Deep mutational scan, measured.
Amino acid sequence: KKRQCKVLFEYIPQNEDELELKVGDIIDINEEVEEGWWSGTLNNKLGLFPSNFVKELEVTD
């Protein structure tokens, strides 16, 4: 099962390897990279994003 999260706050990337987040976006979570940062895929782009800007969705079948 893939983990997903929903964006709660807009985020403007500070580095090229970060994702731009818009409220309501759904991100496929890949892994936790470091404290406070997750790796995920949004709009076919893989990048990092701050985990405190999102809420993980309940996994359903």
Results as ranks from 00 to 15, higher is better:
R3S: 07
N44E: 03
E20W: 13
E16F: 01
Q4T: 15
P13E: 02
K22V: 06
L42N: 14
D61A: 08
S51W: 12
V54F: 06
V59A: 13
T41I: 09
W37T: 07
Q4N: 11
E31H: 03
Q14Y: 05
F9L: 15
E34G: 12
E20A: 13
E34I: 09
N43V: 03
W37K: 03
D28V: 08
E20P: 12
C5R: 04
N15A: 14
V23I: 11
T60L: 13
I12R: 09
I12C: 08
R3E: 06
T41C: 04
E56P: 09
G24F: 04
E10Y: 05
E31Q: 09
I27W: 00
I27V: 13
L46I: 15
E58P: 13
K45H: 12
E16D: 10
V23W: 08
E35G: 07
C5Q: 13
D28L: 06
I29E: 01
L19M: 07
W37L: 07
D28R: 05
E16R: 13
V54E: 00
D25R: 05
V33T: 05
L48A: 04
S39I: 13
V33H: 06
E18A: 01
G24L: 01
L19E: 03
L48V: 12
R3P: 04
L8T: 10
K22S: 08
V23M: 07
E31P: 01
E16N: 02
G47V: 09
V54M: 03
R3C: 06
I29H: 05
Y11Q: 00
K6F: 12
N15W: 05
D28H: 11
L42V: 12
G36L: 08
K6A: 14
F53K: 12
E56K: 15
L8C: 05
K2Y: 10
P13M: 01
E18G: 05
I27P: 03
E58W: 14
P50M: 04
F53S: 13
K45P: 00
T60R: 07
E16W: 08
K55C: 11
K45L: 03
F49S: 02
T60D: 15
C5E: 02
C5T: 06
F53W: 04
R3T: 11
N15S: 12
G24V: 03
F49L: 02
E18P: 00
S51R: 07
L57W: 05
F9K: 15
I27H: 03
L48Y: 12
E32M: 15
I26G: 00
I29R: 03
E20H: 09
F9P: 05
L19R: 03
E18V: 00
L57P: 05
W38N: 03
E10V: 06
Q4H: 05
K2S: 02
W38H: 03
I12S: 11
W37A: 01
G36V: 03
G36S: 11
V54D: 02
N30E: 15
E34M: 12
E35T: 10
V54L: 02
V33A: 11
F49H: 04
E18M: 05
G47A: 09
K6N: 05
K1A: 08
Y11P: 05
E56W: 02
P50F: 04
V7R: 10
Y11S: 04
N52Q: 09
N15R: 15
V59I: 12
E58V: 14
V33P: 02
D17R: 14
E58C: 12
I12W: 08
F49V: 04
L42C: 10
L57Q: 05
G40T: 00
E56I: 09
N15F: 05
E16P: 10
F49T: 00
V54C: 14
L48G: 03
V7S: 06
L42G: 05
L42F: 03
S51Q: 08
F9T: 15
Q14M: 07
W37V: 09
W37F: 10
K6P: 02
D25W: 00
S51C: 08
N30F: 11
Q14S: 07
N44Q: 10
N44S: 09
N43H: 13
S51V: 12
N43Y: 04
I26Q: 02
L57C: 12
Y11M: 00
C5P: 00
I26E: 05
D61F: 03
L46Y: 13
I12T: 14
L46H: 13
E16I: 04
L8K: 08
K55G: 11
L42W: 00
V54T: 09
E20K: 13
N44W: 00
Q14W: 01
W38S: 05
W38G: 04
G40C: 03
S51G: 07
F49A: 02
V54H: 01
F49G: 00
I26P: 01
E10D: 15
E56F: 06
S39F: 05
G40Q: 00
I29F: 08
W37Y: 05
I26R: 01
I12P: 10
E32A: 06
F9I: 15
E18Q: 06
K22E: 03
K1F: 07
N30A: 08
E31W: 02
W38Q: 04
P50L: 03
K45S: 03
E58S: 12
Y11E: 02
D25M: 01
Q14G: 07
Q14R: 10
L48R: 15
Q14H: 05
E31R: 14
E16Y: 02
V33G: 05
V23S: 06
E31I: 11
Q14P: 06
E32S: 12
W38K: 03
V59L: 13
E56A: 07
E34H: 15
N43G: 12
E18L: 03
G24S: 03
D28A: 04
Q4E: 04
S39K: 15
C5D: 03
V23E: 04
E10C: 09
L42R: 06
E32C: 08
F53L: 10
G36E: 14
E56G: 06
D61K: 04
L19F: 01
N15H: 11
L21K: 00
G24E: 09
F49M: 01
S51A: 14
N44F: 04
L46M: 13
T60F: 10
N15V: 07
Y11A: 04
E56Q: 08
E31Y: 11
T60Y: 05
W37S: 02
D28Y: 08
E20V: 06
D61W: 02
L46G: 08
Y11W: 07
N30I: 06
L46P: 10
E20R: 11
P50G: 02
P13G: 04
N15D: 12
P13T: 01
Y11L: 00
K2N: 09
P13L: 00
V23Q: 12
V33I: 15
F49Q: 00
K2R: 07
N30C: 09
L8N: 06
L21I: 06
G36C: 05
P50E: 01
E34S: 13
G36W: 04
V23K: 14
L8W: 05
T41W: 13
N30L: 14
V7C: 08
N15C: 08
I27L: 06
I26T: 05
L57M: 10
I27Y: 03
V33M: 14
N52R: 14
E32L: 02
F9A: 13
D25E: 12
F9M: 15
K6T: 15
N44P: 07
D17V: 14
V33S: 10
Q4Y: 15
Q14C: 08
N15K: 12
E18Y: 04
L8P: 04
L48W: 10
V54K: 02
E56N: 03
T41D: 12
F49Y: 08
D17G: 12
N15P: 03
K1L: 05
D61M: 11
N43R: 14
N30R: 10
T41H: 10
Q14A: 10
D61P: 14
V59D: 15
V23T: 11
L21A: 01
C5H: 00
W37N: 05
K6Q: 15
C5V: 15
S39A: 07
K22G: 10
E10W: 00
L19T: 01
L48N: 10
K6I: 15
V23P: 12
D25H: 02
K6C: 14
K6G: 04
S39W: 12
I29N: 06
K2V: 04
V7D: 02
D61Y: 06
K55E: 14
F9H: 15
L57Y: 15
V54P: 01
E35N: 11
